[in-house]
């Protein structure tokens, strides 16, 4: 049996004495888009940071192609082939758009291929071509999100981690960005682990999904199934009981195995 591309096994991560994720497991296979849903504070960002070494786990293992990568420096993990597009874009504000992209390719030495991939990014996000000489700080939030995704793509990673790419964007822009995420997966063969609060759009682009709450996985399955599930409908798709996100509680606890 071959190992999955990414596997997290019973991972526990703490902020000081506070356990932020409690024994979480997850699998991403080659070629998949997998989504992790969760309300504010569920631990999604913590999960991704643990996967790429920005946070150390206290227990559990993170495996890339079956090899342990937990608790290493994030630059080392990046060189193993995981590109992390962090929450809130985190572009390099005083570098130009093209310099930002080239920083994504920092560890690549095939200059021609990098130049081709910069063109590929411009083909997916034409607005970035127009802005290529501009400092990233001057870009709009949506343009920065495109830049952050493009920068991650330029590493030519085995796996791309996307932390809430819809954050703060208009519905139309969210649609556009997710269309491109789907295309990157299909056309470039890019495997993607996507963290989202926007369940509707995330489940439509992904093949499988997990649902997190207060640091643990409470549900997982095919995205279609999750989309149809009553709990998801209620709490993420706004079919019932509108409330402040993060305050919503899962009603039928017993249904989660």
């Amino acid at each position: 049996m071959t190992s999955p591309l990414l596997e997290m096994r019973n991972v526990e991560t703490y902020y000081g004495p506070i356990m932020a994720i409690r024994g979480v497991s997850l699998v991403v296979d080659e070629g998949e888009i997998v989504t992790v849903l969760g309300a504010n504070g569920a631990g999604k960002t913590t999960l991704l940071k643990t996967a790429t070494g920005a946070l150390d786990s206290r227990k559990g293992r993170v495996l890339l192609d079956g090899a342990e990568i937990q608790n290493r420096d994030p630059d080392w993990v990046a060189r193993q082939g995981i590109a992390h597009v962090p929450e809130g874009r985190e572009v390099f504000p005083f570098l130009s758009v093209v310099e930002n992209l080239e920083m994504g390719a920092y560890n690549r030495h095939d200059r021609d291929a990098v130049a081709t991939d910069v063109e590929t990014v411009y083909a997916y996000f034409p607005v970035l071509r127009e802005l290529r000489g501009k400092m990233a700080a001057y870009l709009s939030g949506g343009q920065q999100q495109m830049l952050a995704i493009g920068r991650g793509f330029l590493a030519r990673p085995r796996l791309l981690l996307l932390d809430e790419p819809s954050l703060g964007l208009s519905p139309a822009l969210v649609e556009e960005i997710f269309r491109i995420i789907t295309r990157l997966n299909r056309e470039q063969g890019l495997s993607i682990l996507l963290v989202e609060q926007n369940a509707n759009v995330a489940l439509r682009v992904s093949q499988r999904g997990y649902v997190m709450e207060v640091g643990g996985m409470v549900m997982d399955g095919d995205s279609n199934h999750l989309l149809a599930s009553e709990d998801i409908k209620e709490f993420y798709l706004g079919k019932k009981e509108e409330g402040i996100r993060g305050r919503r509680r899962w009603k039928k606890r017993k249904t989660w195995r």
């Binding site: 994030p74 985190e90 390099f92 570098l95």
Partner: peptide, 21 residues
Amino acid sequence: IAMQAASQNQLAAYYMGIPVK
């Protein structure tokens, strides 16, 4: 340029595989 990047956003530089240390 990588040094500039690391001074502007250290964690993002790490995520890009830049050997910040």
